[in-house]
Amino acid sequence: MRRFEYHEPTSLKEASQLLTSLGEGAYFLAGGTDLFVEIRERLRQVRHLVNIKRVPGLDQIEWSDQTGLRFGAQVTAGQLEASGYLNGRYPNLRAALKALASIQVRNRATVVGNVCRASPSADTIPPLIADGAVIETYRPGGGRHIPLAEFFAGPGRTVLEPGEIVIAVTVPPPAQGSHRAYLKHGRRKAMELATVGVAVSLEVEDGLCTGARVALGAVGPVVLRAPQTEAILVGSRLDAAVLNAAAEQAMQECTPISNVRASAEYRREMVGVLTRRAVMLALEEAA
């Protein structure tokens, strides 16, 4: 590991001030499971780490029928996965958490950290976007609520300002007739980074799709919503023809690149396969 100075603030205000005053090379530390790798592999020059784990009040997982699920910045993927709140409500998020790296990593990695890393292939982002999650931040001048779909500015980049800290994520409660799924494509069954990840969140009434949000991971600079695909699903009976049309459309709506994991063409093709399969899986897994 390269050397850095370690800081352990005990309030949001202190953490925020530290980060601003330490200047270039200062980063927040949440779970660290990505950050330490980046330091070791020299992908990020870190002079100061500001650990936010001693800041009180960021470790809660809460549920309310009105506002849905809310989890703080210190909540690990493992804790959220194990909490009963996801069962029957957010099967897509649960599947994404279960598919994230390994059990050991999930016991350190925070969900907020996975989101703030802003990787287009992050597992938790597609389901959170499909479910309409909102980011809650702390800023010296007053915090913000930012819809997750508007949170990313590019690969590895968010709209956060210097010193702004994400304190929690809120996910609205599922509506009546909600059906959700997340499918991840990789060469192995575990320890994978998604080649493609597709999350769907549907509302179905009497066989008719009344609402649909489709989020596509690892096929663009950020996790993408697929609005035209959603438009095909909404108002339909989700039969085979509609699913095929939606799959075709999703392939058009993504902008994948080629790299060592897969070619752009293959990724695009998998967006089609996974979109269709995710809708089918969601219909099986009634919320």
Partner: peptide, 12 residues
């Protein structure tokens, strides 16, 4: 809880 000791600072 099982963790990777390489992905955690000693001070944590």
């Amino acid at each position: 809880r099982p963790v990777n000791a390489c992905l955690m600072l000693a001070v944590e």
